[in-house]
Deep mutational scan, measured.
Amino acid sequence: MEVRTIKVFTTVDNINLHTQVVDMSMTYGQQFGPTYLDGADVTKIKPHNSHEGKTFYVLPNDDTLRVEAFEYYHTTDPSFLGRYMSALNHTKKWKYPQVNGLTSIKWADNNCYLATALLTLQQIELKFNPPALQDAYYRARAGEAANFCALILAYCNKTVGELGDVRETMSYLFQHANLDSCKRVLNVVCKTCGQQQTTLKGVEAVMYMGTLSYEQFKKGVQIPCTCGKQATKYLVQQESPFVMMSAPPAQYELKHGTFTCASEYTGNYQCGHYKHITSKETLYCIDGALLTKSSEYKGPITDVFYKENSYTTTIK
């Protein structure tokens, strides 16, 4: 009895394709271990004539594949690729409408935090270190965002349907971005203890939790000093293409032309909904596939993004 075979390709990165001759009487799992086709788990399936010449994702289970996976995804987590594939199996079914010149995501599976993050990423200057993220990001900007969303979920250790947080998501993504040249110098002034300067680099240099107003941050924000008295913390120097200011959701007025974009969060910790506000020729609110415009805006804002380049204080 002759062994019926077909020729397929296996890959971990969709760049390096490895030619395989597979036995049609055995499952993919018996031949390769966990195997995925377009995100779908085909591990328990036997090869079919229609699979001839198709590319299958496999887990990096030998040295060659491990090197290829690390170079593309910059992670050695053995569960990463499987999590990416199972997320992709959902995100490829989502709709990605162009809204006001940006790629958004039609609401499904509690994905409003991903839509808000995706919209924000198209408006701030950011370059990702893992080629996987950078490639998928370019495709997302062009309207094909399924891979990018699935990668975000995998890097953030999230599953489809789980509630997510924009600030946490951005923080994970910033860790995989090139923020080497970003720098922030802060000064804390206390009447009792004097003053202390701190220099922050990388992710810490672009994120701040405690106030939404970048102007206020430049002037000074009140913080408790270690001595128990009130101290003032203010920005001395900022070198970065953008800054992200966050605070627990509270009524906040966004003035046209003073910011790049913002995240609105309605609801409580267990259950809520994100919308995205962007400042173009007027203010726009993007909620999944829905767009509304207004000249002014007041609502429960939790993150505001500002364009920056270089700032030095005039406070002496």
Rank of each mutant, 00 (worst) to 15 (best):
D38Q: 11
N16K: 13
K46R: 13
Y73A: 01
L153G: 02
Y306E: 03
K255Q: 07
S240L: 03
S294W: 11
D135N: 15
P60V: 08
M244H: 12
Y28N: 03
A87V: 08
S263I: 15
A136Q: 08
K316A: 15
Q238G: 09
T5F: 10
D38V: 08
C149S: 05
Q230M: 13
Q222I: 14
L102T: 04
Y84C: 02
K54S: 10
N16W: 03
Y84I: 02
I6N: 04
K201T: 13
T169D: 00
R4N: 09
C225S: 02
T314N: 12
T64W: 08
T192E: 13
I301M: 08
L88P: 00
T211K: 01
T103I: 06
L114E: 02
A250L: 14
T169C: 09
Q20C: 11
Y172S: 14
T232Y: 06
Q30S: 07
A146D: 08
K293C: 13
D135Q: 14
K218D: 05
K275G: 06
N49I: 15
E168Y: 03
R4V: 14
F259L: 05
A205I: 01
F305D: 05
K280F: 14
L126H: 02
Q270F: 10
S25E: 15
V236P: 03
Q197C: 13
E281P: 03
N16S: 05
S104K: 02
S171Y: 15
Y269N: 13
G299N: 03
F259Q: 07
H90L: 11
Y72F: 11
G299Y: 04
A140K: 02
Q230R: 09
T192W: 08
C149K: 02
Q196T: 14
Q196M: 07
K316P: 15
T116G: 10
H176Q: 06
F174D: 00
E52W: 12
Y214M: 11
P47S: 02
Q237K: 12
G101I: 11
I6T: 08
E204Q: 06
V236W: 05
W94V: 00
L153W: 01
N178R: 12
F217Q: 03
I315D: 15
H90D: 08
Y137G: 00
Q123Y: 00
H176L: 09
P300F: 14
K201C: 10
R139P: 01
S295P: 15
H18F: 07
T302V: 11
G228T: 06
E264L: 12
Y284I: 14
V304L: 04
N309I: 11
E52F: 11
D23M: 11
E215R: 05
E264C: 04
N89D: 14
L290P: 01
P241C: 11
V21Q: 10
V42K: 09
S171D: 09
A69M: 11
A289I: 03
L119V: 07
S50K: 10
C225D: 06
V58S: 01
T314R: 10
G210C: 03
G194D: 02
M24R: 07
G29H: 10
T10P: 00
Q196S: 09
T5Y: 01
V8Q: 03
Y311A: 12
S246P: 04
A117Q: 00
A132T: 02
A231M: 07
A205Y: 02
T258I: 08
V22I: 14
G143C: 00
P34V: 13
E125F: 07
N129R: 13
I315V: 15
Q20T: 12
A250P: 02
L126A: 02
I124M: 06
T258M: 14
N110E: 03
A146P: 01
A115F: 03
E71M: 10
C190P: 02
K307G: 11
A154K: 01
G257P: 05
I105E: 01
T76S: 12
E71R: 13
C261E: 15
R83N: 06
A289P: 09
T266V: 14
H48G: 13
H90V: 13
N14A: 13
L173G: 01
E308M: 11
D62G: 09
P78T: 10
A177Q: 02
T266R: 10
F32Y: 08
A154E: 00
Q238P: 04
N157H: 15
I286F: 06
W94C: 02
T76M: 15
G288Q: 08
Q197D: 11
T75C: 08
T76R: 14
E2I: 08
Q122K: 00
I124G: 00
D41N: 12
L235E: 04
Q238Y: 02
T313Q: 12
Y297E: 05
A108M: 05
Y269S: 13
D165I: 15
L254V: 07
C193P: 07
V3C: 15
P300E: 15
S310E: 14
E162I: 04
A289Q: 07
D62C: 14
D165G: 10
Q20E: 10
N100Q: 13
S294M: 11
N110M: 03
T169F: 03
M24C: 02
S263C: 13
Q31N: 10
T314Y: 11
S104V: 01
Q123N: 07
P130R: 02
Y57E: 01
L291G: 12
H256L: 15
Q20Y: 08
C261Y: 05
T312W: 09
G220E: 08
A146I: 04
A247V: 04
L212T: 11
I277R: 06
N157I: 02
S25D: 15
T5A: 14
P131H: 01
I277V: 15
A247F: 02
Y113P: 06
N178I: 07
T302S: 13
L173S: 00
A247T: 09
K219Y: 06
Y214P: 06
G33N: 00
D38S: 12
A262C: 03
L200Y: 08
K183T: 12
I15G: 04
P34G: 06
F259H: 06
L81D: 02
G82R: 08
F128W: 11
K54N: 13
Q197A: 08
A177N: 00
K54F: 09
P60T: 10
A142V: 01
L81T: 11
R141W: 00
L290I: 13
T64D: 12
Y274D: 05
T211Q: 02
R167I: 01
C261V: 01
T258C: 15
K219C: 05
L163F: 15
A231P: 03
N61R: 15
V189D: 07
L37A: 10
N110G: 00
Y311H: 13
Y269C: 12
Y269T: 09
K106H: 15
L114H: 01
E281R: 09
G29F: 10
N89F: 10
I124F: 05
T232S: 08
H51S: 02
G228N: 09
T76C: 15
G33D: 01
F56A: 00
D165M: 15
Y28S: 04
V221G: 04
P241D: 15
L121K: 04
P47V: 03
K316F: 14
V185M: 08
I301C: 05
S240I: 05
H90E: 11
K229W: 09
F174Q: 01
M170N: 02
G143A: 01
P47Q: 01
Q123T: 03
A108N: 05
H276I: 00
G29C: 10
D77Q: 01
N268K: 12
Q237E: 12
R83E: 00
F56Q: 12
T314Q: 13
L119S: 02
A69T: 07
I315H: 09
K233D: 04
G194S: 03
T232A: 07
L283F: 13
I15S: 07
V21P: 10
Q134G: 02
D77S: 07
E239M: 08
P241K: 08
P249Y: 02
S295R: 12
L65M: 07
A40Q: 12
G33A: 01
L153I: 10
Y96E: 03
I124V: 06
E144K: 10
E264T: 13
C285P: 05
P241T: 08
P78I: 09
Q238S: 04
P78V: 14
T266E: 14
T27N: 15
A142P: 00
Y265R: 12
G228A: 01
E296S: 14
D287S: 05
A154M: 01
T11L: 02
K255E: 03
T116E: 10
N178H: 09
R167H: 13
T211A: 10
Y214G: 06
T11P: 01
Y269W: 14
A247I: 01
L153Y: 15
S213I: 06
V221D: 01
F174E: 00
Q30C: 08
Y297R: 07
R141C: 15
T76H: 09
